[in-house]
Write a protein that binds this DNA or RNA. Structure first.
Lengths: 256, 256
DNA sequence: CGAATGCTTGACGGTACTCAAAGATTGTGG
DNA sequence: CCACAATCTTTGAGTACCGTCAAGCATTCG
């Protein structure tokens, strides 16, 4: 089983009305869109973009002229200090909307990098306001997505600020697993886990070495398994308790 | 000089068309609103609310039925772990919009607490969508504010994850000073600084004791002064460099 | 097969945490 | 107006968690 096989084809449909056949939108995780909304989204969309694993989707400090919806693959938002220390701000999964913050940030922007090969739907930034104007409902949806994303950063801030190493790792594993599960990326209890330990360290605000030791400890305790880039949560309750992190089932969200 | 004397009167205007005389909106920090927008905002507004220093504006885990714009005073958003560890997510100043994240969070919400006596304009949550519908421009503005707030949380996450104690304190002092300056809360180089060291520790992800020692160290270096609850930045450039944090002048933002 | 990348482990040191207690400041009631 | 409590700040001592350094091992890739 390869990553590209799901949750949907790596490429969105092409042709005249590509959004009509959007496989992502079939998932329970996303709200249905009316015909009119779909038409507006489609006219908002400029095309698709592919980025290979490790490639840059949005460069730090260089505001992108496009917005994106991640269609397939894993990515993350990050910032770096001038001496190179990097902090991953949040991870991105299919359905996540990318680039809103830049809209009003004037150069102090975060970067976005693909972890796996990724496919994105691109939208020209200068059509954002016309979109709000034409379909206030879609504007409301975008605000929804922005608020949801901020909530995730809030949680990550609590993690970096107040959890110890073991709690951080437990929280992150559960968080990533639950989110992947939601968009249909879990098969038989296993989810593709394409991150290396440097990613995890940068997300948690830990050093690489300490991240490794903490991961090994939780693994030896039998809380999770990691095999050839696939993750399986063995003791979800233990991890949730350790991390003091209990993700409620999320309502379906809009998909732009 | 008392805090209540500025940046504007502690109470917004009352009467038939209270928003017409909104003193906050006169500041350069905020974009002007058209008559029609002002009218819509006014009809969106349910009234004012006062919260005394230390009081709760939004209780954690209890989604509020109202949204707010902070009109006067200082406040902060926070989350606590189940054993009581608290993380301050961001600080709130006049003009900040409160409660958007809750809209879609289903109970896993942050709390909001007033640091000083605070005055807020309250808006019923169930009129948020009608507002988007009636005035897409205001919806766009709200998205703007949400994105700006997320950018602040992003910065705080970098701080908690990757900066050491001295860098954290330097960054926070400059951040708060610049933001206060922007809404006219600085007089003769001094800004009211109503936080205790526990607030700072909770915002930076440090312990109270270590926060104290770090503050004292930077103070002994002459980088800032703190006197009777008023802050003066003595060496802005040194603090910016130490914290690797250079706040660009911000464009005027919308005010809802 | 050698280089590159990533994972793992040990040793050591330092930053930051905890515990404890003494000032300083503010508020309150007799 | 003073006594006392409550809150906040400050400092010291001891500790532990986590970072840095270093090196060996595993895996992949050209």
């Amino acid at each position: 089983m390869k990553f590209e096989d799901y949750p949907v084809a790596a490429s969105p449909p092409q042709g005249i009305n590509p959004c009509d056949g959007c496989a992502l939108r079939q998932l329970d995780a996303f709200l249905p869109a009316s015909d009119e909304e779909l038409k507006t989204i489609q006219s908002f969309r400029a095309g698709i973009r592919r980025v290979e694993a490790g490639g840059s989707i949005v460069e730090e400090h260089r505001p992108s002229t496009q917005l994106f919806t991640l269609y397939a693959g894993w990515a993350f938002r990050y910032k770096t200090l001038s001496d190179g220390r990097r902090q991953i701000l949040s991870f991105l999964l299919p359905g996540d909307f990318i680039g809103l913050q830049d809209e009003f940030a004037e150069g102090q922007t975060h970067g976005v990098e693909a972890v796996t090969d990724a496919t994105l739907c691109a939208f020209p930034r200068n059509k954002l306001w016309p979109l709000f104007h034409a379909q206030p409902k879609l504007g409301y949806d975008i605000t929804w997505l922005a608020a949801r994303e901020e909530k995730m950063v809030d949680d990550n801030l609590v993690t970096a600020g107040r959890r110890n190493a073991g709690e951080r790792v437990a929280m992150l594993l559960m968080h990533l697993y639950r989110r992947a599960e939601r968009v249909g990326m879990v098969r038989d209890g296993w989810v593709e886990f394409p991150f290396n330990q440097q990613h995890i360290a940068d997300a948690l605000g830990l050093s690489l070495v300490h991240t490794n030791k903490t991961l090994r400890r939780l693994q030896r305790l039998g809380l999770y398994k990691l095999d050839a880039g696939w993750l399986r949560i063995m003791e979800p309750h233990a991890l949730e308790t350790l991390g003091d992190y209990f993700e409620r089932p999320l309502r379906p969200t809009p998909l732009i």
